[in-house]
Amino acid sequence: MTDFDDLNEPYSFDALAEDLLAAAPMGAPPSAHLLASGETGVQFESLVLFAEPLFATYELDMADAFALKADPDAALPEVLAVLETARMLWAFFSLPPDQRVKRRPALAAQLVGPDPSQEDWIAIESLLDTVEPYWQAMLPQEIEAAQQTGHPALDFDALLEHPAFSLVHEQAGRGYGPEALSEIEARALFAQPLLDDPATLIDDTAFEAAMERASAYWALAQQPSAVREDTLRETVKALANGSGSADEIKAEAQQMVERFHALFPER
């Protein structure tokens, strides 16, 4: 049986380093990996197409966006900034119209800082006017299809609170836990209970399934508590995938969320 309680068992990270590096390159900005992999709940290709007017406005080559997907570690800062903005606008335009009015200050703070000038507001309104027709041209079924990533589609508030997008960047420079582990080390320690069975390590299919669950639980644990239950349901649905193991997946997910916060209480 998986042991979720033994948080301090010595663990060798070396055996998992290659797989975890592939899942979350250490040199990549967190948002680059999240956007490229669709972990924010929008397919990367759909996000790039939605960002087309931004690439045109800033005279950037959309081909560089697809290069980012191939190698997030080498993401061009200006291209990443456009894609981050596009993902934020995707969430913003997903709000009901009356909520967009109320959430404009939060959007402005995210885009230009907490004290937008009059010129900033003019630029933001121009940006919204430029991008909104692209959003309105998308059919509901196209939006729904674009959000079929196997990950929950983060809404506006959840995106604002996500560590990779939050204005509070202190976490980005800190390690995980009292030993200040790197993200790779932290992910390996976190995933340990899912990999304790030696049979899992020698079975490629079982290993990949365990790593998929570990990645999903890692993302789930970092969701704001206000949306975590909804995210949990979507995560269970995606991982169970009609296999009849939904109850087991849900219990495992809840235990792994508890493990994350026990290991890394500062997060």
Rank of each mutant, 00 (worst) to 15 (best):
A146G: 08
D204C: 03
Q254R: 13
Y217C: 00
L154W: 12
A86E: 03
D197K: 10
L49E: 05
S94V: 00
F13G: 03
G173E: 08
P10R: 06
A86I: 01
Y134C: 01
L95C: 05
L49W: 04
P96S: 03
F93V: 09
F264P: 09
D5V: 01
V257I: 14
W90E: 00
D203N: 15
T2E: 09
Y58K: 02
P105S: 11
W218Y: 02
A75F: 13
A23G: 15
E234S: 10
A199K: 15
R259M: 03
L263A: 13
I122S: 08
L195R: 05
P77F: 08
T130G: 09
D204Y: 07
H33T: 15
E119T: 14
R87T: 12
Q192F: 01
A146D: 05
E142M: 14
R174K: 15
M256C: 14
D71Y: 04
Y176L: 13
Q110V: 02
V101F: 12
V112C: 15
M138W: 11
P25C: 06
W121M: 14
A199P: 00
T200I: 15
A186Q: 07
P29K: 10
A219V: 09
A145C: 03
T2I: 11
A108C: 08
L60G: 04
P105I: 06
V101W: 07
D155L: 04
L16I: 04
D115K: 14
R87D: 11
D6P: 00
R259D: 00
I249H: 09
D19Q: 14
L68Q: 07
A221L: 01
V48D: 06
L154Y: 03
E18N: 05
D204A: 12
I184S: 12
R174D: 11
A70E: 13
D196S: 12
L34G: 09
H33G: 13
A240K: 06
N8L: 07
A164N: 08
A240M: 05
E78W: 04
E234W: 08
V82T: 01
A164P: 06
A253N: 01
E229R: 02
T130Y: 13
G177S: 04
G150P: 01
R187Q: 12
A70V: 02
A123G: 05
A216L: 07
L111C: 06
V131M: 13
T85K: 14
P224S: 04
V236H: 10
A22H: 08
T2Y: 11
P97V: 01
H151C: 01
F156Y: 05
P114M: 12
S225N: 07
L263R: 14
D230K: 08
L220N: 10
G27S: 03
F93S: 06
Q223H: 05
P224Y: 06
F93Y: 11
A28F: 01
S46P: 00
A209L: 12
E142I: 06
V82L: 00
P105A: 06
T57W: 06
I202G: 01
A15K: 10
P163I: 05
V227E: 10
E208K: 15
